[in-house]
Design a protein around this nucleic acid. Sequence first.
RNA 1: CGGGGUGUAGCGCAGUCCGGUUAGCGCGUCCGCUUUGGGAGCGGAAGGUCGCAGGUUCGAAUCCUGCUACCCCGACCA
Length: 489
Amino acid sequence: MAKEIITEREADYSAWYNDIVKHANLAENSPVKGCMIIKPYGFAIWENMRDQLDKMFKDTGHVNAYFPLLIPKSFLSKEAEHVEGFAKECAVVTHHRLMNNPDGDGVVVDPSAKLTEELIVRPTSETIIWHTYKNWISSYRDLPLLINQWANVMRWEMRTRAFLRTTEFLWQEGHTAHASKDEAMAEARQMLDVYADFAENWMAMPVVKGIKTANERFAGADETFTIEALMQDGKALQSGTSHFLGQNFAKAFDVKFLNSNQKEEYVWATSWGVSTRLMGGLIMTHSDDDGLILPPRIAPVQVAIVPIPKPNEVVNEAVGKIMDELKAKGIRVQYDDDKKKRPGFKFNEIELRGIPIRIGVGKRDLENGTIEMVRRDTMEKSNPSLDGLADMITGLLEEIQDNMLAKAKARRAELTTSVDSFDEFKEVLENKGGFISAHWDGTTETELKIKELTKATIRCIPLGQEPEEGTCILTGKPSKQRVLFAKAY
RNA sequence: CGGGGUGUAGCGCAGUCCGGUUAGCGCGUCCGCUUUGGGAGCGGAAGGUCGCAGGUUCGAAUCCUGCUACCCCGACCA
């Protein structure tokens, strides 16, 4: 098997994750701490995710726009909860010019170029957007307003990790305005469904849809919905959120509309986003000690073909035909005809990059009218016939996609435990990890106490769950339903 | 901001405790020959302000002082 390029998961999970990011050519560190360089292969995966999500947003009636990176500092403070939540992690622009250092080498900030109002680099765009919506909305005829933007944002985190938590990250943020509370709530729920659909059916990442507790809610929201995924190490990852913002931002930015009865009302709002963090989830859901494993629907290259032992006229011609057939079926295929690398080297690279199917074509195969094929998810090797290859591979890609989701679901089921006492809760958290389903009395005090004692947080109150009478694992007070606890990224 | 670790060739590292020729090794790169169904072999070559700044010394990658960057673990968070 592969030389030990990648630290084993069992040995050191963090090192394993970093090794995958590095050796699968997804990203590397930049000169600025917490910022990352997303390399072409990593970006190609993100592009596929982005394109699919964008299509799903358009299919649900949204349009794209772009709002600026810089926001006047005063905007942030208009919504009290919002500023409270984000103030601690904002990058601030204070000057607009540099000058040669009068005392020596290099450049320094020109003190005469101080801005009259400081600007913040957006940590999210609610404020600039609601400032703008005020001018765009005056009548119920202007509603709903369904806008998304693809953008970068910056949150000055204390501790960063490639993709999972970076200072600058890429995301999309939807910002919608509605004439009624019900419609806004329906929008927030709809986008949660879109995210769950995307995560499960495209990323093969099973997620739990749920509601955040007051403590975990987005700063400025009345209700936050979340999709929560479970990673291989038993830690949860908040993978996307959709917020019902009530009239908080409408009130803060004075956005009113005239309804059909000629009465003035505040607008109802939502916002929702997923980010490059999903890439981290993708890695930690599927990959193994040989490298990345990509679900076919997101993989930039679905089939990699390797000439055995190296390219020659006969093999090239045969591969050319195979590629034409695969491309005709819409399959993304790549021929690795580098003469300098040997097959074994290529095999390992293809595994590191997580390409779903690898095909080897050599003289011996062609004499038999077959090829050598290996699927990345199971590493199963087979020698299928060249006849009907394209159809077979089309089917196999779907099978791999399904298998990856099934496998991830099975692991999540294995790592989800119901407990009824605090001792049991601590025991499971310590020795097994994963989601823990338990009764909670509904108070923030209890939630924080449990967090303090165990480091576990309430990931969500799952939606569509049967109500069940019980007693809180910590306080013994009555509870109407179970919630999901976990240690989280 | 606390605790730990690391900075030596493009990458990964040894050497530092106990100062002493020209700072090594593996991978990669370049040249040549031989190989070729799971990270090829042999021969040759190029490639270094030893993180930065001071200090001690005849002499510093090595000792002392200060600084700095990055990684990991915590507190904070999508």
